[in-house]
Amino acid sequence: MAASAHGSVWGPLRLGIPGLCCRRPPLGLYARMRRLPGPEVSGRSVAAASGPGAWGTDHYCLELLRKRDYEGYLCSLLLPAESRSSVFALRAFNVELAQVKDSVSEKTIGLMRMQFWKKTVEDIYCDNPPHQPVAIELWKAVKRHNLTKRWLMKIVDEREKNLDDKAYRNIKELENYAENTQSSLLYLTLEILGIKDLHADHAASHIGKAQGIVTCLRATPYHGSRRKVFLPMDICMLHGVSQEDFLRRNQDKNVRDVIYDIASQAHLHLKHARSFHKTVPVKAFPAFLQTVSLEDFLKKIQRVDFDIFHPSLQQKNTLLPLYLYIQSWRKTY
């Protein structure tokens, strides 16, 4: 089996927390979720979201995140109150960019949308954001926290390059993509939290790379249903696996070995980020709550012996909000 052949990389499970039942964490995340308004986002309300009498641009960002990046939404709820709305805006910006690729039928249209967001970032730093909910909220975040323009532009530029429907040539190319998107998002989150620390940035770099790799793995069944495969070609070739094997949902050992190798790289990034947690300011830990969902996925895929098409991998963990709150309460990542 794939797991038994390579099992030495995987460390002990961390979500089991001995003695936790003896201490009762304060009510927090679930209460916040219940208090949030929840009407559906419609095209009509989106168009009017920044106008008078609408929910408001902040509510639009929150709803977009809740629907399109639920794990990011849950993590954002546990940030300090003064930072929450800015991170909602930042993550909503990322969602807007991420959904361009799947929402257009022609690359030219995707490039036009990316050009809109490039100009939007430029206009935000000229205090002239367009009348668009996410743009307005992002402008507020930039003004409030003096966010670095370079990180925002890196996210747009990398998403634009990724409009080509090509597999990553190697794991390094996937890591570079993750660094310029997910890690950049974390650098900006640290700025919102008021953290300027080399060790925190180092952790953000590795956690962002782990996030990018896990996202690529999780999306494999969806991409396969659209006749697309984006997994690193070098690892596929190493194990003699073709793109057609993934399109046919082949579950042979060599296919699972490909998934094992890729998942192991995410695991190593996560492990390395945690190896120097004592040197990272505690104030930075809330920015890294996504490690909970990353670890949850890596454990699940290990349990199914790296069968990327196993139905259990597509099921939401209903206990994730609780695990996130516990992680926040324990002040760790």
Rank of each mutant, 00 (worst) to 15 (best):
P80R: 06
K154Y: 05
L217P: 01
L64Y: 15
D123K: 09
Q211H: 12
E179T: 02
D127I: 03
L238T: 11
H239F: 02
Q182G: 10
P232Y: 01
S264P: 00
Y60R: 06
D261C: 05
Q243E: 04
E244P: 03
T181C: 12
N170Q: 06
H145M: 04
L163E: 05
I326T: 13
A81W: 12
I192T: 13
L238H: 12
S103A: 12
Y70A: 08
N317L: 07
A203E: 00
A135C: 10
A98W: 04
P281H: 06
R159V: 04
S184L: 15
L62V: 14
P311N: 09
N250R: 15
S275L: 09
Q302F: 05
V255Q: 08
L198C: 05
K271V: 15
P80Y: 02
D102R: 05
S86G: 13
K172R: 12
K154H: 08
E179G: 00
L97A: 10
K209D: 00
A200S: 11
R66T: 05
Y73L: 14
K166S: 13
R66K: 14
A92W: 04
A203W: 01
T120E: 03
I301H: 00
L65S: 09
I301Q: 00
A54T: 08
L65P: 01
D245R: 08
G53N: 11
W139K: 03
D296P: 01
L111A: 12
I155Q: 06
K283D: 15
S50T: 15
Y260R: 07
K67Q: 10
L193R: 03
H202Q: 06
D127M: 05
G72M: 11
E160A: 12
V229I: 15
K118Y: 05
T148Y: 03
H131M: 14
K228R: 13
Y125L: 04
H269C: 02
L90T: 07
V100P: 05
A200P: 01
R144P: 00
E96L: 11
E160V: 15
T181Y: 04
R226N: 15
T181S: 11
E173L: 04
E71W: 03
L268G: 08
K300Y: 00
I326S: 08
F309K: 03
V255G: 05
L270G: 00
L190S: 02
K271N: 12
A273V: 03
Q290F: 09
K154M: 07
W329A: 09
A284L: 01
L185R: 03
E63S: 15
L320C: 03
A135N: 00
D296N: 06
L247Q: 04
L163G: 05
H239E: 02
I326G: 06
K278Y: 08
C126A: 15
L217A: 02
Q302C: 09
N128E: 11
S264L: 07
F88E: 03
A89K: 01
D58E: 13
A178V: 02
R84P: 02
M237N: 13
A178H: 01
L231G: 01
H269L: 01
T57E: 11
K149M: 11
T189C: 14
E191I: 01
V156C: 08
G212K: 00
M112N: 14
L322T: 08
L268T: 08
D296C: 08
V280A: 05
L268Q: 11
V214T: 12
N254E: 02
E175A: 03
H310N: 07
L77Q: 04
G53L: 13
W139I: 02
Y325M: 15
I262A: 03
D165I: 14
L186I: 13
L79Q: 11
A273G: 10
R113W: 05
R169C: 10
I109H: 10
P281Y: 02
S242R: 04
A284N: 00
F288Q: 00
Y73P: 01
R256F: 03
H223W: 13
G240F: 03
V142N: 05
T220W: 03
L217F: 03
N146D: 13
E173I: 03
I155K: 01
D305Y: 03
C236V: 11
R144G: 06
Y177G: 09
L294E: 01
L188A: 10
F93K: 01
I155W: 03
V142W: 05
P232S: 00
H206S: 04
P133K: 10
A49V: 14
I213Q: 00
L238V: 12
Q302W: 06
L174P: 01
V46Q: 05
R113N: 08
N162L: 11
M153G: 07
F285Y: 13
D257K: 04
Q211I: 15
Q132I: 11
R91H: 09
A266L: 01
K101Q: 15
L324D: 01
Y323N: 15
L313F: 07
N162D: 15
F285Q: 12
N317S: 12
Q211W: 13
R84D: 00
V134E: 04
Y60L: 08
T332D: 13
Q132E: 13
D58P: 11
A210N: 00
K271L: 12
M233G: 08
D197H: 09
V282L: 10
F93I: 01
R68L: 07
A48F: 15
G224N: 14
S105G: 15
